[in-house]
Each structure stands twice: as C-alpha cells, then as structure tokens.
Simulated scan of single mutants.
Amino acid sequence: MERPKVRSYRDLLVRKAAMDIAVDCYAATKSFPASELYGMASQIRRSSASIAANIAEGYGREQTGSFIQFLRVAQGSLKELETHTIVFGRVGLLTNEMVAVLLSKSDDLGKMLHAMIRSLQRKAEE
C-alpha cells in the first residue's frame, strides 16, 4: 500500500496525532477548578499544543537539520506533557482513566517522533 503524498505539515500523521493529544488535553482540563485555569490547566494545554506547533514550525523551515531539531523540541514538550499528566493524576485533577489514555497516546506519539527523526537522519546521510 502506497502512502499518501505529503504536501504540507498538515498531512503528517505525527502532527495529526499531536493535534489529537492537544484536543484531548483541552477536553480533560475543562473540568479543572477555576482556580487552576491559569495554573495547572494552562501548563498542560501549552505543553500539548507546543508539540504540534514545533512539528509544523520545523517542517516549515524546509531544511532537514532544522526539522530534526524541532522534532526533538517536540519530544521535549511531549515529556513535559507526560510529567504534567502524572502530577495532575496524583493530585486528583485527572482521573486514573484519563491519565492512562493520555500516557498511552503520548507513548504512541513518542514512537512516531522517534521514527520520524531516525528516518530523516538516514535520508540526510545518503
């Protein structure tokens, strides 16, 4: 089966997965108390949105080295998101079920980012 042609960063499956996690994070934090809106809710929302934003920005640089660097920044934001998710679960702001869902999706996205970085590195070495 042939993969669809990537014409834009919007076509990247890794970016679509990152967008899905960001949407999930916004939905999960809607139930946070108002006192956390600018604290913990903001932290998880910003880190989740940053993943997709860095993928898009790196793609837009049109240089493999820059794209790889931005994918690494996205990996860092993903680790930040995972940490916030665990903390919010431990303090009772997220249910155990939501923590499990977000961490599972984060694991999948992390594997996608890692595979994309390795693929781009191999192509750059050719």
Rank of each mutant, 00 (worst) to 15 (best):
residue 56 A to S: 14
residue 71 L to M: 09
residue 36 E to W: 04
residue 94 L to E: 05
residue 85 T to K: 08
residue 23 V to P: 00
residue 29 T to A: 13
residue 65 G to Y: 03
residue 69 Q to C: 04
residue 38 Y to G: 13
residue 4 P to V: 02
residue 43 Q to L: 07
residue 60 G to W: 01
residue 31 S to N: 06
residue 45 R to Q: 13
residue 88 F to R: 00
residue 14 V to G: 06
residue 17 A to L: 03
residue 1 M to P: 14
residue 51 I to N: 03
residue 101 V to L: 13
residue 67 F to V: 07
residue 39 G to W: 00
residue 8 S to F: 14
residue 109 L to I: 08
residue 33 P to C: 02
residue 43 Q to C: 09
residue 120 L to E: 04
residue 26 Y to N: 12
residue 74 A to C: 09
residue 66 S to Q: 15
residue 36 E to N: 11
residue 106 S to N: 08
residue 82 E to R: 14
residue 77 S to V: 06
residue 107 D to M: 06
residue 103 L to N: 06
residue 123 K to Y: 03
residue 62 E to H: 14
residue 94 L to D: 03
residue 54 N to C: 11
residue 65 G to F: 02
residue 109 L to V: 10
residue 67 F to P: 05
residue 87 V to S: 08
residue 67 F to Q: 09
residue 116 M to H: 10
residue 42 S to Y: 01
residue 107 D to E: 13
residue 36 E to T: 10
residue 8 S to Y: 10
residue 83 T to G: 14
residue 30 K to T: 07
residue 26 Y to M: 11
residue 104 S to V: 02
residue 56 A to T: 11
residue 16 K to T: 05
residue 20 D to E: 09
residue 54 N to A: 09
residue 27 A to C: 02
residue 82 E to K: 13
residue 56 A to G: 06
residue 126 E to Q: 12
residue 91 V to E: 03
residue 7 R to V: 02
residue 116 M to D: 05
residue 4 P to I: 00
residue 68 I to A: 01
residue 74 A to G: 04
residue 42 S to W: 09
residue 11 D to I: 11
residue 103 L to T: 11
residue 107 D to R: 10
residue 30 K to C: 09
residue 7 R to S: 05
residue 89 G to W: 05
residue 51 I to W: 01
residue 74 A to V: 01
residue 31 S to H: 06
residue 67 F to N: 13
residue 40 M to S: 08
residue 7 R to Y: 11
residue 112 M to C: 09
residue 12 L to R: 03
residue 8 S to T: 15
residue 27 A to K: 15
residue 73 V to I: 15
residue 75 Q to N: 10
residue 96 N to V: 09
residue 100 A to D: 13
residue 77 S to Y: 00
residue 23 V to H: 05
residue 20 D to S: 14
residue 107 D to V: 13
residue 19 M to I: 15
residue 102 L to W: 06
residue 107 D to G: 04
residue 53 A to E: 01
residue 65 G to T: 13
residue 41 A to N: 04
residue 94 L to T: 06
residue 99 V to R: 14
residue 95 T to V: 08
residue 43 Q to W: 11
residue 86 I to R: 14
residue 12 L to I: 09
residue 72 R to L: 10
residue 78 L to P: 10
residue 74 A to R: 05
residue 68 I to Y: 05
residue 115 A to Q: 11
residue 125 E to N: 13
residue 38 Y to S: 15
residue 58 G to R: 12
residue 42 S to L: 14
residue 32 F to Q: 07
residue 115 A to H: 08
residue 106 S to Y: 02
residue 79 K to M: 15
residue 112 M to F: 01
residue 1 M to K: 12
residue 41 A to Y: 00
residue 20 D to Y: 00
residue 48 S to R: 03
residue 98 M to A: 14
residue 65 G to L: 10
residue 121 Q to P: 04
residue 123 K to G: 03
residue 110 G to Q: 09
residue 13 L to H: 12
residue 11 D to F: 07
residue 105 K to C: 02
residue 123 K to E: 11
residue 24 D to I: 04
residue 70 F to Y: 13
